[in-house]
Computed example of a mutant assay.
Amino acid sequence: MNKIRENPSAYKGVQPALKVRQLVEPEVRPQQKRIAKNARPNAKIANYLRVYKADPYTLVKWVKLGVEASTIRELADSMGMPKDKLYITLGLPRASVQRKASQDKRLSPDASSRVLGMKRLIGQVQSIVEESGNLKGFDAAAWVATWLDQEAEVLGGQKPSKFMDTPEGQLLVSQLIARTQSGAYS
Results as ranks from 00 to 15, higher is better:
78 S>W: 07
96 S>W: 07
140 A>K: 03
124 Q>H: 03
93 P>G: 05
92 L>Y: 09
113 S>G: 10
79 M>Q: 12
115 V>R: 00
147 W>T: 09
60 V>N: 12
134 N>Q: 13
85 K>Q: 11
89 T>K: 01
126 Q>K: 10
77 D>M: 04
129 V>F: 04
112 S>Y: 03
97 V>Q: 02
144 V>I: 12
68 E>T: 05
64 K>W: 00
97 V>G: 06
134 N>C: 14
75 L>E: 10
149 D>V: 06
62 W>T: 08
109 P>D: 05
125 V>Y: 04
88 I>P: 10
105 K>M: 13
127 S>E: 05
148 L>K: 12
131 E>G: 07
93 P>E: 02
105 K>R: 10
106 R>S: 13
76 A>P: 05
102 S>D: 02
104 D>F: 00
95 A>G: 15
118 M>P: 05
123 G>T: 05
112 S>C: 04
132 S>C: 00
98 Q>A: 11
138 F>D: 06
58 T>W: 04
120 R>C: 04
131 E>A: 10
145 A>W: 09
135 L>I: 14
147 W>E: 02
107 L>Q: 04
128 I>Q: 05
145 A>Q: 11
71 T>V: 10
86 L>C: 07
90 L>G: 00
62 W>C: 05
115 V>L: 04
143 W>G: 15
74 E>F: 03
65 L>E: 10
123 G>L: 12
97 V>Y: 00
146 T>G: 15
92 L>K: 10
86 L>D: 09
120 R>F: 04
97 V>L: 00
135 L>Y: 08
124 Q>Y: 07
111 A>Y: 07
71 T>S: 13
141 A>D: 11
129 V>W: 03
67 V>I: 04
138 F>I: 10
88 I>E: 14
65 L>Q: 11
128 I>Y: 04
93 P>S: 02
98 Q>P: 04
108 S>N: 04
60 V>W: 04
101 A>C: 02
110 D>K: 13
102 S>N: 08
135 L>A: 10
72 I>N: 03
128 I>A: 15
